[in-house]
Design a protein around this nucleic acid. Structure first.
Lengths: 210, 210
DNA sequence: TATAAAATATGACTATTGGTCATAATAAAG
DNA sequence: CTTTATTATGACCAATAGTCATATTTTATA
């Protein structure tokens, strides 16, 4: 009985084709500058068909967010090395986030935009996906704990709080760069340089003082 | 000739009444949950009248943002004391931003939401208001420079970059708290505690090491 | 005060767009 | 080959930002 399997595959493929089309347009024209009709045209489908695969525009947007989060999680997990100290791993993970930001700016913006606008409307279960074992935040907490145990990371602040602080701070600077590149220009600030400097400042704050 | 003056006052008053109505509804129902008709009803005016005072919904939203920025600027400027060191002043200014966040959460959200969604569409001149002499960012740069001159603040990073980093980092954590309070609950993190801890981490990173 | 001119306000109307659903086309099962 | 199930379509609906011809109110002028 290979027919159900084939149909499932085809369903998945169409799902992906729609996300591809939406992504292409969103990344090019911004999340506001694109209508569902535009996406349908790009995907060579009727608008109604989109709604067989996504229950709303927001749901489609969220599919793009999930793609981005998958990439980000992969990048962050693959630099982890259990032989290194917690602090070293945190640095590597931070660098992975930087790479994500630079190489996938569209996904970064998709995530930030979605968070800013739609988070309040998310169902509780969806909100908690951010706390999945695979989420960047939970992974950061674990590694920060390791760092506190091996003595490379400050005990002044509990690991969970440190994780939230680090994550929010780095995201905050990326967001500034993404939204206000023009201002950085005017101040004569190079974004990459800014990120490097932030990492220096952060490292100072993170290290255990002895 | 007091009539033009009176008319100007009345125009200003109506302008403010409309912003009052919009603000009330936006703060209660969120920036998406409110229509222009809702605002007109709340202001006891016809919808068309709103458009005599604001060229768009976005423009009305922006008026609320400007109110918030005025308050924030006042709070930040009034704690500055030229007799203190740069670092001490930066701390006070940070605390002022915390007060703004806690006492005016509606304005904080208005600013963040507007930035996330509408910044790309802003006209260049409007974008640069953020660089006005009165803007928080420019003031931070000046005070950080003073701190570098009096030796209380690290020279590792230029003042302009430090300002952007500090501002973005603090805003990033506030934004996390505003959007993801539920997650903090689940992690057992108290928002005020989180902010205090962030300030400790930031102070370490900021201080000149000797 | 009476009238003309200017300023302000109104709400029915338009255009856009997210989302729906009766109908059609296609594929699978019997 | 016929019936049933699945997938696709696009005309249609509802909501809402924004417009504009008309009406009302205020000010200036005679």
């Amino acid at each position: 009985m290979g027919i159900p399997e084939r149909k499932a595959r085809e369903k998945q493929r169409r799902f992906n084709e729609i996300v591809d089309a939406a992504e292409k347009l969103f990344f090019r024209l911004g999340f506001d500058g694109v209508t569902m009709d535009d996406i349908a045209r790009e995907a060579e489908l009727a608008k109604g068909t989109l709604y067989l695969y996504f229950k709303s525009r927001e749901d489609l947007h969220y599919a793009i967010v999930l793609r981005g989060l998958d990439i980000l999680n992969r990048l962050i997990h693959e630099v982890y090395d259990r032989l290194k100290t917690g602090l070293e791993n945190i640095r590597k993970m931070g660098e992975a986030y930087v790479r994500f930001f630079k190489e996938y700016p569209g996904y970064f913006s998709a995530i930030m935009y979605f968070d800013a606008i739609r988070f309040e409307k998310l169902q509780p279960e969806d909100k908690l996906k951010i706390l999945d074992t695979n989420s960047p935040l939970m992974f950061f907490i674990d590694v920060l704990k390791e760092g506190q145990e091996d003595g490379s990371i400050t005990h002044d602040v509990p690991a969970a709080e440190l994780a939230v602080i680090l994550w929010s701070q780095v995201s905050g600077v990326f967001d500034f760069i993404a939204l206000r590149g023009k201002i950085l220009d005017l101040l004569g600030i190079d974004p990459s340089e800014l990120i490097n400097h932030q990492f220096n400042v952060l490292s100072n704050g993170l290290q255990e003082k002895n």
